[in-house]
Structures are given as C-alpha cells and as structure tokens.
Design a protein around this nucleic acid. Structure first.
Lengths: 395, 395
DNA sequence: GACCATTTGTTCAATCACTGAAGTTTATAC
DNA sequence: GTATAAACTTCAGTGATTGAACAAATGGTC
C-alpha cells in the first residue's frame, strides 16, 4: 500500500473515529447485502455480535435501517432481517445537451418517478425549469424524507463545487447551478461531471465490488472519461481530471469545441461518425446518431464504414487510458453500446495491442443501461455523504 | 470526498486503530518538523498533550525517536526536542540500464555512503554484484539497525511484487529480484518502478506537502511516468499504470522497444534526440545525451534543433497527462533538466495550450537533483511500512 | 533573593468503543 | 417435554482519548 498522511491539518483520531468507521461498514454491508441479519453482519464484518447490535440499534434510531421479516433456518432462533429504509429518497437530475431528466429514487437506487424535458439553451431558463420539476417531485413525496439532490452535468465543476466551468458540448457559460437550486428547495445539492457520475453508478450500484481501478468512457456528442483509481474518484486539480477527450490525436486535425485541434473526441464521438458519413457523400444532414446506427444495421455500407472509423479512433484513444492508468475495466457508456457487435471487436483489438508484455488488457464492458447510469450516479453522489468512507479501509 | 469502502474483507476497527492512526501522525510530524517538542506536537496534531506524551513514550521505547537537547523560550519550562533516531538506516539500490547505485541512508533520507557499478547485462550477474555491495554496506553499519532494502528499477514489478516483468530499456527477461536479495541479506526488500520511486522521493523528501495530485515524468533512454492522485500512488492493475511512454503518438512511426510503433518515448526520449541529431547528417555515432547537451550549449545548430524537436514531443505527450489527470504539478526528472532553459519554454507552451477553459495548467518543475531522486525514493519505499498511513487521513 | 506568571510535561479519573464470555430468547427435532 | 442450535443481549474488562489538576522548570520583577 502506497499512501501518505495528510499532515497539515492532521487532526488526530479519537474513539468516535472507530465508531464512524464501523458504522459505515455496517451501513454499507446492509446496503449491499440486504436483507441481512445481525449475526451475518457480525460474521462478514469480523465485528462482535454485541458491537453489531449496538451499531444497528443506532442506525434504526436514526431511521436509516428497518427491521424486516424474520428468516427461516434449519434450527435455532430466527434471524431478524435488516434492510435500508427506502422511505428515504433522493432527487437526481441529469442535464444533457438535448434532454434533461429529473427523477426520484430511494437509497437503494430504485427510481419511482422520472420526467424528461428538453434542455433550454439558456442556463437560467434551464435552472428555472429544473427547480419547478424538482419542487413538484418533492411535494409528491409526502412523508418521505428527501436526502438531497444530485446533479450530473456534461462539463466540469469548478473549485467551489457550485459552478459549471467547462462544458463545450452544452455551450453554457460559467454558471452557478448549485446555489439557486439549493435555495429554492432548501436541500443540499451535489454537482458532478457526467462521466464521474457514471463511475459512481458503476461502483455503487453496478456489481463492481472489489474493482478499485476502472475507467468509464462516455461517448455521445463528445467523449468524457471518469477515472477511478485506488478505489477513489480521481478528480484532479479543480476537478478537471478525465478530459482525455480533448487530447489532440492529430495536432493538425479539425477544430474542436474546446478551441483545440484534432482532439480525440473530434475523431471518436457520435458527432465524428456523422461527419464521416456526410463526408463520404451520403447526404442526409438532419441525421442523428441513432439513425446512423439503424442505417448500418440495415446494411448501409457508408454508415458501416463511418461507424467503423469512429470505433477505430475510440480504440486508439483508449490506448492512452490502458497504457497510462492500467485499469482493470473500461466501461463504455453511450448510444453506441446498442451496436456493440460493431464497436466491441474494433476497440478490443486496439486495447489488446496496447497491452504491454507482462500485463493483461482491461475488460472493455458496454454499459447497456445507459440513460440510467448518469441518474444512478447522481443518487450515489448524495449517498456518499452518509455511506461513503471518510476514511479508507485498507485491503 | 469521493471514496468507497472496501467491503469484502472489511475488517472492523477497534480501539488499536485509533492508536495506529495517531502514532503515524505523530511519527510523521516528528519526521517533517524535527526538532519538535511534545507541546508543539499537541498543538499541531490537535491531540491532547497527555496523549502525545504516551505515544512519544512508546516511540522512544521502540527506538524510533530520541530526546534531543532542550529548547529556549521567552519564559516557562524548556521544551525537550524530539527527533528521529538516525541510527536506523536503509539500503537503497537504483538499477539503471548503464549504472547501478547502492547507497546507505538514514530514516531522514540523508545518505552516508554510496557506490556505483556498471550494470551487468545478465540479471543474475547483476543481482550477485548488488548482493555483494549490499552485504558490504550492511557490515559497515555496525550497531545501526538496517530497516530494509528499497530497489528502484526501470521497469514494472509483477503482481507478486517480486518479479521484474516489463523493462524494455534494461532488456532483462522476467526475473525474480526480490527473493535472492532478501535471502542473502535477511532483510525485507521492496521493489518499485523508477518513476514511482521519484514520486515517493518528491512526496516524502521534496517539499511537496499538501500536493495530492502530481505526476513525475522521467526522461532518459525511455519515458516513464509516476502518477500520484488523491495523495496516493496510482499503480493500476499489476502495477502497470504510468506507461504513457508507450502510447503511440503516430501509429505509423518508428518501432519501439516495447514492440509497438511510434510510442511517445520514440519521439521524446534522450535516444530520440540522438536519432534526430544523426538523421540531420551530423555524424558522430558514439555520442551520448550529455554530449548532445554540451554540443547545443556550444552553439551547434543541429544539436539545438534535435533537442528542440525532442522538447516539442515531450510537451506533446504531456498533454495527455494534463488533460487526463489534471495534476497540480508535473515534475520532470532526467539529464535534460540540466538544460532546462532549452526544454522548459517549449514544454510549457504545449502544457499551457492544453489547459482547458476554467482550469489552470500544472506547474512544470525540473527536478535538478536527478540521481538522488530515485535513490531517495527507495528509502521512502522502505519507510512507508512504518510511517505510511495504512489509513488515509481525510482533508 | 523571594515571588509570580508562564510554559512544558505528567498523572489520573471519566468516557467511549470494542471484546468476549455468559446469559436469554426462540426455533426445530426427537 | 427435552435437547440442540442459532440469534440476539447483557455486562465486566480492556485500550485509547479527553480534560482537569499537578509538578517541574524558567525568566522577569520587586
């Protein structure tokens, strides 16, 4: 294990720290293994049954956990199952260039309602619409306690965690998104980049337990990446880590929305495939990416060629990630996963070509549930405050 | 804070964990601020003086810490200064393609002796020579306790942490380096990639406190990178993270030692500059990189052009790192730092070009003390076991 | 030279959390 | 019914921190 201590403000630990750690362990075990009995919690955590009972008592008092039905065993007293209180809910907002989704989920990441609006081009109008739907959603909750609001954005959030600072595909100016929503609803609002939200979704709700090194690549108008290393999101300075999409593959290439030239996303995004298709003289300028996928499926050779070229560049860009970060898995998110038979093999071959002697290439996995990835990530974003470790547990 | 709990083997915490955390905090505060009094430790750590006294008592009993002279204050009782016991020493070995260095340092990273040998091309012969020097060094220690042996290598260490698995510039086959040295000396041996060792050197002995996101780029025969994110080394699957040097910048470019084509290091390493120089018809095939630097300093236009081209590609490759990881700092290690006036501006301009709107470019810093960077890293490698956090302290 | 404020370092009762053993409760099987 | 088994619960014991009170050491002041 390679780590350092944070020294400057290294506030020493006291006994509450132990309770804090164990409380989080127990809460997360209940979350991931529910329904589960106290006895099983003790076995899995290595803590004593007596300790588990005390912690669970506390969690029940705080309304995080409910006692459920009793189980059944070959003999002996029946276990009382514990589960998360799913009357605690979270609002998730997924802002994308064309559509914005507002949804309500419980702490298990199960959505109960969902609403889509087209994203206004003016950020202030967008924020107004979002606030309106969120308020309606909160009203519909009745007694259920709303924990907070998570927002996924196709851009970067500045140092103060409230301001969108870089969103070339959304084309919004730097805008404070957090404060107006927080003020209008009285709830805490957490903002996160869309690719990072997908990482959180994968780690919290996907079955990726034990995977401490993974990268999510989101492919739509642009290309974004979310980097998860050593079991933590790598956010970098000002949360800007993950912009591999704007590394120039060809410094003489076409101009990109970021102001640069020949960026990866200029060659590997949905928009790139549409450009390839048009450039091949295939007409039809009103086409969108799903249309292109359909055309290819119908056998259109030029559509197939355009997609193959896109896939080639996607794989080429991923070589940066494979070589530089050596993740266990690369999760691909976007419409392209619907035609994975077309993209997967091309990407795989590039990724395998990058695997250096002595290393094994990462698994490349399409996340077929797309739309939900971002939204689930927004839920995880809010859950982190209560479930996330404020200290990491060593392997 | 974005983290997850390790669930599978999530062994719960008990009261000893608190002592473990605080012990490490105190030990590191003594290391970084020595000489320091108990009272100051209490102020800085936020722990009670009584607690500090107990912990210090333990550290003194374990021989990690010594009481030094008393201080002097405007009034009041004089503080007793504490410092690390520098009778505890560590052996550092830096294996490089041409020379290997074996050195002895104390826990403060101060070297007391050092010996260089030319690296045999046969790994077994190399290991024999190294063992011989290490044993001589250990004998010379007398009473001083040797904590362990740290080894820096220009390659990757496999999953079992004992085997060199990828070292294209050293040209050694997969070799178990740890076991023979450990067996011959009876000490624990820690292996680490050279670039990662430089990261450890920067973080442990450089004045980089508080910098939790930095990348070291080592430039010599090849290009290596050491990635430090969220205050931890990113090692990736099988410790392969950091091989940005083998990302193809031009898939049609010259063949690389890794088997690929057009890798970054084919364009940006010392070897690349020598190739550019030869290709420009400048003769002199026995030339090495320091010679080329001297030629340029003497005004040789072709040498200058070759170095400028190398600098250009170095900067170009760093754009991957800037965009993808957004580190606060990039530390450059290698002979080229001696001519930083030539490289710095070229690299800086590329790095600035990569800074996306809303972000600030990283500081690019030449590490002028080169040779020592790797060696100091090997010392840190061993210190990690006792000083390194096995739990991270939150910000 | 005695006294005092001041600062360091130590001692000790109180508190908090976990352990582990012993006890309670609740179930099935014979 | 009685025995066995398993899930909780209770409680004394241990280890660690806190915080207040104390002891020691020092320079300045009267």
């Amino acid at each position: 294990m390679v780590e350092t201590l944070e020294l400057g403000r290294a506030h020493g630990a006291s006994s509450e720290v132990v309770r804090g750690i164990n409380r989080r362990i127990v809460l997360n075990l209940i979350r991931t293994r529910q329904p589960i009995s106290r006895a099983d919690l003790a076995r899995v955590s290595g803590l004593q049954r007596s300790t588990i009972s005390l912690i669970v008592e506390q969690l029940i008092a705080e309304n995080w956990v409910l006692e459920g039905p009793t189980g059944r065993l070959p003999r002996g007293r029946r276990p009382t199952f514990l589960r998360l209180n799913d009357e605690r809910v979270i609002v998730g907002v997924d802002i994308r260039p064309i559509y914005t989704t507002v949804a309500l989920a419980n702490v298990n990441g199960q959505f109960s309602s969902q609403e889509t609006l087209s994203t206004p081009s003016d950020p202030r109008a967008a924020i107004r619409s979002i606030i309106e739907r969120v308020q309606r959603l909160i009203h519909s909750c009745g007694d259920r306690k709303v924990e907070g609001i998570g927002v996924s954005l196709p851009g970067r959030i500045g140092r103060d965690a409230d301001r969108l600072v870089f969103a070339p595909n959304l084309k919004w100016p730097a805008t404070d998104i957090r404060t107006p929503i927080a003020r209008a609803t009285g709830l805490e609002v957490e903002l996160e980049n869309a690719a990072n939200a997908c990482v959180l979704a994968a780690v919290w709700f996907g079955r990726m337990e034990g995977c401490r090194n993974l990268v999510v690549v989101t492919v739509s108008e642009g290309i974004g990446t979310g980097i998860f290393l050593n079991g933590r999101l790598a956010r970098g300075l000002d949360g800007m880590a993950g912009e591999f999409g704007h590394v120039p593959l060809d410094p003489e290439g076409p101009v990109c929305g970021c102001g640069g030239r020949g960026c990866w996303e200029v060659f590997g995004s949905n928009r790139a495939a549409l450009r390839y298709f048009l450039e091949s003289g295939a007409g039809a300028s009103g086409l969108n990416f799903p249309d292109l996928l359909s055309l290819a499926d119908q056998g259109n050779a030029k559509a197939k060629a355009a997609l193959e070229r896109m896939a080639h560049y996607l794989g080429r860009g991923m070589r940066m990630i494979v070589a530089g970060l050596a993740p266990e898995r690369i999760v691909v998110v976007g419409d392209l996963t619907r035609s994975w038979h077309r993209f997967g093999p091309v990407i795989e071959s590039q990724v395998r070509a990058q695997a250096l002697p002595g290393s094994s290439p990462p698994l490349v996995i399409p996340a077929h549930e797309d739309g939900m990835a971002r939204l689930k990530g927004t839920i995880a974003l809010v859950l982190q405050k209560d479930f996330g470790g404020n200290r990491e547990i060593p392997a």
